[in-house]
Design a protein around this nucleic acid. Sequence first.
DNA 1: ATAATTGCAAAACGTTTGCAAAAAT
DNA 2: ATTTTTGCAAACGTTTTGCAATTAT
Lengths: 144, 144
Amino acid sequence: MELLRSRGYRLTQQRRLVLDAVRELRHATPEDVFRHLRGESESVDLATVYRTLELLTELELVGHARLEGAAETYHLIDHADHVHLVCRGCGSVREAPLSVADGLAEVLRAEYDFEADLGHLVVFGRCGTCRRDNPAADDLGSIT
Amino acid sequence: MELLRSRGYRLTQQRRLVLDAVRELRHATPEDVFRHLRGESESVDLATVYRTLELLTELELVGHARLEGAAETYHLIDHADHVHLVCRGCGSVREAPLSVADGLAEVLRAEYDFEADLGHLVVFGRCGTCRRDNPAADDLGSIT
DNA sequence: ATAATTGCAAAACGTTTGCAAAAAT
DNA sequence: ATTTTTGCAAACGTTTTGCAATTAT
């Protein structure tokens, strides 16, 4: 948290609250953070939530990914970062260690000269449960 | 295109035009499709573009991915599908064959019982050019 | 003739911005 | 005292929706 000060930013109550909320909620949209804090004694304006998340992203304290649905979700960058597995059937989000994509990273580096940032990777697909419940995986578009 | 009829949908001029536009433009936002068609003798309402893209997605004729920036982009699902490599530096989008992620798919299937749909995969990172132009890849958050 | 589809206009989102008041340095 | 940061309100861009007119079947 001294990272803020060391870069010339000010350490405010709101920034503390937003970071804590992201930590607690694991995967949270700005709206999620806003509603989570509404309950507390202190509450934080939605615009401030957006501005703070942007700042925390710049400081690389949080990362974000578009999981599904409209809004972006933010999460802490704990050093053991992860890949998101999003099931189109039930919408569940699991996390897998970055190592599952080691091969991909290697190929992209070697053959495409592309340095992948896999901490933000989102893989859509279907989990085992949904595949067994509904093997006719055809008409999924309309789940929304 | 008979796919539409065979599923009980009607084959309209607008649907033909939207599908053609997606084919021509390769990666197009709904707005892109709309503007592309504005020029033509026939034009299509933006709301219709949205509805049509949703339908074509359901029929699995097109796929979509959130590349960067605000809007979703749509592309044809030609059977030789691809992975998107989006550079955070210059915003360029390259395509790599699905095979680059074979290893990933395998691990997810074997260890996570997760059937990944990699045709929609988006990998963020930095291309070689941007890495060489600006090796200090630190303060990227604010590119927007 | 019937039911699906369109265009239009308006609403509903998620997100960003200008500015005066408040808070951190 | 100074400069950043906040809350509020209003704007913005994207997407969705209700409904009467139109079009494909």
